[in-house]
Design a protein around this nucleic acid. Sequence first.
DNA 1: TCCCTGAGTTAGGGAATCCTAACATAATGC
DNA 2: GCATTATGTTAGGATTCCCTAACTCAGGGA
Lengths: 179, 179
Amino acid sequence: MSAAAAVVELSESLEDYLEAIYHLEHENRVARAAEIALRLGVSRPSVTGALKALRLRGFIHYDPYTHITLTAQGKRIAADVVRRHTILKDFLVKVLSVPPAEAEHAACRMEHVLGTEVMARFLDFARFVEACPRAGAEWIRGFGFTCHDKGAYPECQRCLEAAKGTGPIGLSDGKGPGK
Amino acid sequence: MSAAAAVVELSESLEDYLEAIYHLEHENRVARAAEIALRLGVSRPSVTGALKALRLRGFIHYDPYTHITLTAQGKRIAADVVRRHTILKDFLVKVLSVPPAEAEHAACRMEHVLGTEVMARFLDFARFVEACPRAGAEWIRGFGFTCHDKGAYPECQRCLEAAKGTGPIGLSDGKGPGK
DNA sequence: TCCCTGAGTTAGGGAATCCTAACATAATGC
DNA sequence: GCATTATGTTAGGATTCCCTAACTCAGGGA
């Protein structure tokens, strides 16, 4: 959209590499291939390949046997991926009460597939819920606690009972084939 | 985990094919390759390849030049994908007020990456919001309307103003690099 | 200084997914 | 029944992403 729009489409995989480099650069000032491999659970040759692809696109400074740092453009993209990740994880944890470890995992996947508009809604909603004095965090907590502590918000039980029945949302009753 | 657990891991791509076949079977009783290709925006040879992969895994009845139908197992998996899609789209539209077309697109991507637990939270939350007399649909609509009609719920404006500021959620102020 | 170790790379492959071009089959219309 | 058209398949290739095995390079210790 804007002039700052990404010229090159990044694959999910390359976004993951960029994100890892971003984190490692923050932790250690530079990223090293072995650490990237460890973090992403891939082999070192896979990292080398990805680094070449990222350099080709102008996202990292890199030459064989040198340390790796993000270019300005790379930093911008990586920061955006990290931002999306954080927004999604926060939403999952704070609004939907998904356990942090699972939220982390789900955010890792979701971060690559949602557009700017949808991301903005996730962010706004989470903020709204935390800020709204009419319902807000307390209200949400009523929902959240049901996942861990059925008795914490007794006044919410009635709503939850209703919600568990076949509501207007969802095709089935929620006991699909599972997986 | 259970005996009903998927024995074979399906790729996102194959899940999409299965989903398309499911819909076409419902619309036309049988699915045909050209329609699948049209629906998924791929070439007909790509469909042939996918059909072989799905047959190999026991998800469809299929022989060259014949019509395509889902096996019992295929139907189960496909129905689950469709269910996830519906839950996510409903959530995006009803809770986050994402425009239907965009919600459709986002749901298409999300449906492949979220586990059972997270899906359950999305479903429960949407039902809860619609069922809760304390806040529920009205409350959510206050949020939703802000996306389309700033003045509809004036009593929500204060919360929304607060939410727009730098809240506890999100790394940046929301004006990231965009994409 | 020289060698050893570990980090990084190249070489060579495999799986998944898509494509185009060309061929085979089925269905339709006269 | 036969030609035309639409549908479906095969052949051949490109891309992405990952792997293992083997080689190269750089830095630390004797």
